[in-house]
Amino acid sequence: MKQLVVSAPPHLKTPRTTKRIMIDVVIALLPAAIMGVVLFGLYALLILALSVLSAVLTEYVYEIVAHKAWKSPSYFLDFWKGFDFTSVVTGLLLGMIIPANVPWYLPVLGAVFAIAVVKMLFGGTGKNVVNPAVAGRVFLFISFAAMTAYPVGKDFGLFAVYAPDNIVTGATPLTEYLAGNTVQVTKGMISNWLFGFGMTGCIGETCKIALLLGYLYLVIRKVIKFWQPLLYIAVTGLFAVCLEGFDFTAFLPSVLTGGLLLGAIFMATDYVTSPKSNLGNIIYFVALGLITAGLRKATGIEVVSFVILLMNIVVPLIDKFVPRRPFGYVREKKAKEVTSK
């Protein structure tokens, strides 16, 4: 028998900590956030900052009260040593999925709700049932009418484009499209969609190229699996095409407008609120795509946040019925090959 190593756990140390992963997500979000500020002005920066600050402060205050830190004052600083940046990600994401012209208290209230109620009340990091940023956005959407008036992003006029007549009052290309108006899909229009010039929408969701850069970064850093967002986006687009009577010109508008890219890359792939098994994930993302396209067609408003919320709640059910591959499990066939050699 070879050497038996006896030591205290953990036996396998890896540099992948929650903090590291969250920092990666923040870096991935930065291009879209910067483009959001460029397109919507400095007030958007204020909103993002307020959202992040509120989220972090809420977690801090909650932990202080929960640990009764006044009895052991060292906790006031110990908290920051164990700080795992999850609230920074929640705050930044929440800031990016609200319009740029909302009053200042909206990101603050949304962040407080997202962190205190959705994350901390359920048990903190890793224990939330739904994605806190998505829940925060839904909370704001239900509560305030200001969430429905989207401003128009700056148009630097780089691409000559035919503009639909009433884009100025804030009908996003998606609502235009869903209300039955044909959106003329020209090359210039697609370029504007990709770069977010002159597009209406939330702060972080208009510049698709920046979001795709973030996606590539996350895939390279192995934070998310590359196929998950792609599956969601592809199913949404294809089902929308089916619903429009197999009209393939509907694919690009339904994919490139609205919050689909942001939701698919950053919010649906959250570890805590997605299924644990591969098959479960496939079911999850396919269902997300079908329901998103279906609800968009039926209601005519942007439903990505609601659908992610809905599917998050279904995830425990998926986990219950779809068996996971146990850690270390090797397929029997391959094991037989190994032994027979």
């Binding site: 009418a145 429905t148 008036a149 009052t169 009908a171 209300a179």
Partner: peptide
């Protein structure tokens, strides 16, 4: 002119 932005229709 009487309109509420975000709900033009």
């Amino acid at each position: 002119e009487t309109v509420v932005t975000g709900t033009t229709k």
